Simulated assay, not measured.
Amino acid sequence: MVTHPTARQAVFLSSRIFFYNQKPRTVQPAANANVYKILVVDDDPDIVELLEYNLRKEGYEVASAPDGRKALDVAPQFSPDIILLDVMMPHLDGIATCQQLREQPRFKDTYIIFLTARAEEFSEVAAFEAGADDFIAKPIKPRALLSRLAAHVRRDKDPQLLSDTIEINGLTIDRTGFAVFQDGRKITLPKKEFELLAFLATSPHKVFGREELLQNIWGNDVFVLARTVDVHVRKVREKVGDHHIQTIKGVGYKFNTD
Rank of each mutant, 00 (worst) to 15 (best):
P139R: 04
Y111S: 06
D134K: 08
E120K: 13
F107T: 04
F114V: 03
A132M: 02
F122P: 09
R118K: 15
K108I: 09
I113H: 11
E121G: 05
E103K: 09
D134I: 09
A137H: 04
Y111L: 14
E129R: 13
R106F: 14
D109G: 00
I140F: 05
L115S: 10
A119K: 15
I95L: 13
K138S: 07
A96I: 10
P105V: 01
Y111N: 09
I140V: 13
T97M: 06
E124H: 01
D109Y: 11
A127V: 01
I113V: 15
I136T: 02
E103V: 02
F122R: 15
E120G: 08
I136N: 05
F107S: 04
E103Q: 11
P105W: 09
I136W: 07
E124N: 01
E129A: 12
Q99T: 04
R118F: 15
I112H: 06
A119M: 06
A126I: 07
I95C: 08
I95D: 05
T97G: 02
A127C: 09
Q99P: 05
D133K: 12
A132S: 04
F107P: 00
E121H: 12
L115W: 00
V125P: 03
F114L: 10
T110W: 09
A117W: 02
R106W: 10
L101Y: 00
A127G: 05
F135Y: 15
P139C: 01
I136C: 04
R118T: 10
K141L: 15
Q99I: 08
K138A: 06
D109M: 12
E129P: 01
K141C: 08
L115R: 06
Q100L: 11
E129C: 05
D109F: 11
A130M: 03
P142A: 01
G131Y: 02
G94I: 12
E124F: 01
E120C: 11
G94N: 03
G131K: 06
I140P: 04
Q100E: 07
T110L: 09
R102I: 09
A126S: 14
E103P: 00
Y111Q: 12
I140W: 05
E121T: 10
A144C: 03
F114P: 00
